[in-house]
Each structure stands twice: as C-alpha cells, then as structure tokens.
Design a protein around this nucleic acid. Structure first.
Lengths: 383, 383
DNA sequence: AGGCCGCGTGTAAACGTTTACGTGACGCGA
DNA sequence: TCGCGTCACGTAAACGTTTACACGCGGCCT
C-alpha cells in the first residue's frame, strides 16, 4: 500500500538542545517558553529565535510530570449514536477549548465494569472526568471514580457532583400539553429499562397522567431510543384495537420512527393521532410533520458539566460533596405533529412556536427556524 | 452551590510507596506491573497485594516520558454538527479501543491557523493524528502536521497518507441513477464553496450530466450542508419558473431540508419531483418519503484511518509517502424519494433496496431495516 | 568606600517511571 | 572444591521539564 521509503523520524528538539544552541541554561529557555518576566530582552530574543529554528515544542509528558497536571479532561459516554451525543460533545468541546483543556474521549461503555476499566485507563491522563452513564444504577456508580474529580451527567447519584436534565418535569409538561390540547388517551413509548432518563420520563408521564386524568390508564410500549424501535412501536399502535389520541415518545428518534410507521400504515399525523418527542434534536423541525418536542439544553448540559468540574478542581477539594445545581429545565417546542392552533399558519417555514421559556435560547446551536444560509452563524464543514 | 467541605485530596500512591510497603525495590514493582517474567511467585504475590491495597496506578506522564510513547492518537474535526461526525467518531473510537489507544478530540477548526494551533496543542500528547479538514486547500495542508505522523481524511493531499470517500464517483452514480429513472432536468444543491467533498460532488454531478445528457444544462444552488440551507434551496426551487424533475442534494441534511420545503409548498415527493441525498445518515430511512441516497461507509472511513495511522507508526517511518489506498466507494441506496419501481412494495417497513454492492454491509452501524427492538445489536443508552 | 539589594542567569533537585547493569545466592558439572 | 551459568533482585541512570536556590554583578544609600 505504502511506498516503503523508510525514513526514521528524527528525535525532536528538547529544551537542552535549545539551551545549547542559544548558549544559555535550560532554566532561561524554560522562562522564555513560559513567559516569565525576568529575562533580558536580547537574551529572550536569542532564545526565541533558536526555538523557532529548531521548531521546539515542550514535551508534554515531562511537563505534566513535574507540574502534576495534564491540562485535559476525560469524557465517558455510553455510546455515540444519534443527535444527542454529538450535540453534547459540541458543548463540552466548546467549553474545554475556552479553558484550553484537551478532551479525552471514550465511549461504548455498557456495564459498570467496562466503565471502571475506562476510568482506570484515563487515570493520570486527566485532571477530572465527565461521566454520562444513565444506564448505571446508584449502586454501580458508588465509588466508581473515587479518586479523580468527577461530574456525573444524568445519573442517579446523590452524593457526588452532578448535572442533569429535568426529564421528569419535562415529561410532565409534555403530557400536560397533550391533555391541554384535548387528547384523552396517551400512549408512551419508553426507553431502555436500565436507563435513568427513560425511567424519569416514564415516571413523569405516569404521574402527570394520574394527576390530570385520574381515570385514564397509562399505556407504555418499551423501546430503546432508536428510530427502529419507535418504528416497531408505531406499527404495534397502528395495528392495535384501541388507537390512542396521542403518542408520547421518550426521545425524538423513536418519535420519528413512529411517524414513519404511521405513514406506512396510512395514518395521518396529526389528523388521526398526535405524536410528540423529547430532546429536540436538530432534525426534529425538518421531519414531516415537524415534531412537537421538549427542547433539552444539550449544549448547556455539556458546558455546565465542564464548569462544575473546573469549580471542583479549582477548589482543590475532593468533590464528594453534593452540588446543589438544579436540573436543567427542558422547554416545550410546539410544532405540527400534535396539531396546530387555529391562529398559527400551519404551512410555512419550520418555525418553532416556543413554549414557556422563550428566553432560554441557545446561541451555539444551529438555528433551524431561520432558513437562509447566510443567516447561519458559521458554515458547516462536512456533510 | 457546593458545600465547601474542603478536603484536600491525598497524593496518590507512587511506585516508591509500593516498593517500600512490599519491602522490595521499585524495579520489582515495575516488573510486576508490566508482567515481566523474572520475579518469584511469592514476591509477585506480595507486591500485587500491596498494589491492591494502595490502589496504585502507574503515573501515565512518567511512563510516557520514559517510554517515549503516549498510547493515544489525536482527532481533529472541523465541526461536530450532524449525523456524519458522530458516526465517524464511532468508527474511530471503536478502532482505537481495539488497539488500546486513547482518543484526544478537538473540533471546530475553521481556517488553517486554528488547525495549526490545535495540532501544536496536541504535540507530544499523541503518537499520531487523524485530520478531517475538507475546508482546507492543498496549500493550507502543505507542511501542516509535518513532524507528527498524520492521516488525512477527505482532503486534497497528494503527498501524505490519506483516506477518502469517493465523492466524485458517488455523485456520478447518483446522477446516473436519476437519469436512468427518466429524470431529464436535475438541479444540484451543493455544499460550502471551500469544502473539498462539496466540490467533488458538484464536479461528479456536472461531469455525469455532461456525459449522459449533453444537452441538459447544470443548475446548481449553493447550500452549506445544513438542513436550513436545504430548506432555503427547496423554497427557491419550488418558487422557480421551471421546476426540475429531480433534486440532488450534496448531503442528506440538505435533502431533508428540501423535503420539508417542498411539503410546505404543497409539492409531493416523489410525485411532483424526485429528491436524492448523499451519506445515508441513520435518519435518512425514517423521513417521509424515505430518502434515496448514497451510502457512505463512514464507520469504515474512521476505522481505515486508524489502521493506516497504525501502519505508519509501526513502520517507524515519517509517513511522507503517498499511500495508494483507493477511495472508499459509496453505494446507492434506493428508497422512495425518487419514485419506487413497479415491482417493489411501496409502503412497508423502511427497507433499503440496495444498489450495486450488496456485500458492503457495515455491521457496526445500527440497522434501520429491521424494526424489532430485540433484533438490534445492543440497546442504545441515551436519547 | 563598604554593605545591601535587585536583577539576570546558572545549577541542580525533583517529578515517577523503565531498564541496563551489577550483585549475590545457588546449582551443577568437572 | 572450584568455576561458571542462571536467576531473583537491587542500584542508578535516564526521560524532559520546572523551579528553588545560589551566584555574581552593578547601582544606590549611608
């Protein structure tokens, strides 16, 4: 495959090389590199020139070793599939970059053992950890990353720093909305059994239903957050004897699968039944009909987690203290999939009619309301 | 926010601590840690026990320093928005994990200067680099990561190791397909001007059109790979005087935006006109109508790039040699958005009718043809 | 004029590993 | 019994930095 022109790469220049070439000690070079004040201008210039010539870059390992810090944080995710994770990483990456931190990424962690192994592998490489592990129980999490500062996201931890989306409240809000639109029978498509968010959303659905419509019976189909599982659930609903007035899926992917299933069965949304999702992934505004959903501040979740981690690090504390950061509230985004109000023009640009919190606008996420390319913040680079 | 129980974290155990506690030298501890043979079973056991007790983990920085290797690779992406990147990272992450490599991720690099800065920041932290920079020109790329082994993905490099998707060939295949279905006027929605893939796809469109329909005039609307820009282009097409028979968007996101626009203008796809995309992102099968597109082996692209990098590293060579790895060929995936053949059942599960290369199945990507949740490889963990 | 301070620069220790080499004990054949 | 090889283990150098401290020099104050 490759032409074997086997050129052995030369060892790159060290601080000693620079010192020798500039006829100074390594200390002075170090001072110049780190921008300390007490170096004579002409000495500094001479050293800088040599650095340039030799293309010297300080060895990170040596620096980490002596300084006892790595300038990087670790991110552990269960998976990378779907719109949620890329948005989350975008948020984390942005915040990390702003603080000049490198990001060590690791995904696909099923159970607690895999997660523990990944954490061990990061030991010493990172100052702290960001962990998203909704599939782990409180028991699993207990003592998991005990000796490295860690912020858990969307996890059932009670005694460690954490940051979560208010899935429960969001689900209640959505059910309330659906009931407010007159839907009396609402079926829920839930996420994986072992998933904390899935559990919270289902709980919100059940609670709101019980409190607002005490006589209605909850109906739950189990999915796994994929479009395919939503599709399967949709087929089942369409075939079923008593078709519900509305379907509330625990995430947008399943809602979209559900839309596809209904379409394939000849059911029209929202005419025959309503469909709602959760997360407001970027594509939710572009499916047909546009999807009513709960917008989750994903990018903020990432940013917030980084901030919290930095706070813990700055305090030089073992962050075993429970932070009181309130969960991030999702906001209702009303689109056509649940029926459109008389007033609102039904067939126009995929503009979101914002719910409660119109102020919670996330400026780092591509807007999908505005359609002209030149209105966009910055052009995307890849398909 | 946090209860300020300011517990200063104890310095974690070093190899010296272990050696002292086990009453051996550091050398023996090192031997045990690294699984060398020449240590007596009972000594080994004693040391292992102490390691356990002290929860000793070798300091990565020190190890990197002495071994001159970091066990990690860097990944540089222009952005993280959209289904393409998360799939790519999935592929890279999987391959990296298989080789016990850590992943250092950095995104949002607009121009060559930002990219160079990011590369400098990774110097010494990584063994090699994976760079996806379709927005950089050959000039920009020249000498960019000169002293660290690098594999470029989808970039116009000629003298460095690289791995690319055959965007040009894919575009030609898609146009050929559209023409084969009888469409005589085909409009192209292209990607950003400065994007290599966008350029290649447009070139493929133009060339195939010129060769198969010499009398047809190419029509190109410029987008930026976002759904919003596809939506805008779709509105423009719908409003235009001479509506084309088909629209070929340079990626799926724009095609989906386009579908939304047509729907909002009362145009039916594929009845009134056909729409095709590129990439086959997971959601392409779930929009209405399901999207005909070119499936790009994204996960393989990631895996392949890792393999190539490892090969370069193993050879201890400066990989300034041009690898002859052929570009990865996309495969045509025919769905309903371009009209369905008489034979094929039009309204059923969103099954893809595979094009040429039915063998090129990617087993690590969630299948969207199979709808039952328990058929899935593994459950997804997060919304 | 002598002492002191400040400043630029150099020396060397330290960070936590890995590993080449040395050392002593032990077994075995001559 | 002596010599040699093998084996377990220890000693210390090396990796490339940062930084506390030492040092020498010049200028200012008394």
């Amino acid at each position: 495959m490759t032409k074997p022109r086997s050129t052995t790469r030369p060892r790159s220049a060290t601080i000693t090389d620079v010192a020798r070439a500039a006829r100074v000690s390594v200390a002075s070079v170090s001072r110049v590199v780190n921008g300390h004040a007490n170096v004579l201008p002409r000495t500094r210039a001479r050293i800088a020139k040599v650095i340039e010539q030799l293309r010297y870059v300080p060895n990170t390992a040596a620096r980490s070793l002596i300084r006892q810090q790595t300038q990087s944080i670790g991110v552990l995710l269960p998976d990378l599939y779907g719109g949620f994770f890329s948005e989350l990483i975008r948020g984390i990456d942005g915040a990390a970059r702003a603080h000049k931190l490198q990001l060590l990424l690791s995904s696909s962690h099923g159970d607690a053992r895999e997660m523990a192994a990944a954490i061990r592998a990061m030991h010493g490489r990172v100052e702290g950890l960001l962990v998203l592990a909704p599939q782990l129980t409180a028991r699993d999490l207990d003592g998991l990353a005990a000796d490295v500062p860690t912020v858990f996201m969307n996890s059932p931890v009670t005694d460690r720093p954490a940051l979560a989306i208010d899935s429960y409240g969001g689900a209640r809000a959505m059910v309330r909305h659906l009931i407010g639109r007159g839907h009396r029978t609402i079926t829920h498509i839930s996420g994986p059994t072992d998933n904390f968010d899935a559990h919270e959303r289902e709980r919100g659905y059940r609670d709101e239903l019980a409190s607002a419509l005490p006589r209605a019976r909850p109906v739950v189909l189990r999915g796994d957050f994929t479009e395919a599982s939503g599709y399967a659930a949709g087929r089942e609903i369409a075939r079923g004897a008593r078709r519900p007035a509305a379907v509330f899926a625990a995430n947008d992917g399943m809602a979209i699968g559900c839309l596809a299933a209904f379409d394939s069965c000849g059911l029209a949304v929202p005419r025959d039944l309503a469909v709602a999702g959760f997360d407001d992934i970027p594509l939710a505004a572009y499916v047909r009909p546009p999807l009513t959903t709960m917008r989750v501040p994903i990018v903020e979740l990432g940013r917030g987690a980084v901030s919290q981690l930095l706070a813990a690090l700055a305090a030089h504390t073992t962050p075993t203290t429970r932070t009181l950061t309130p969960p991030l509230a999702p906001t209702l985004v009303v689109r056509e999939s649940c029926g459109i109000d008389n007033a609102v023009s039904p067939k126009h640009a995929p503009v979101s009619v914002e719910g409660h919190d119109a102020g919670g606008h996330d400026d780092s996420r591509p807007q999908h309301g505005i359609s002209r390319p030149h209105h966009r913040k910055r052009p995307r680079r890849k398909p």
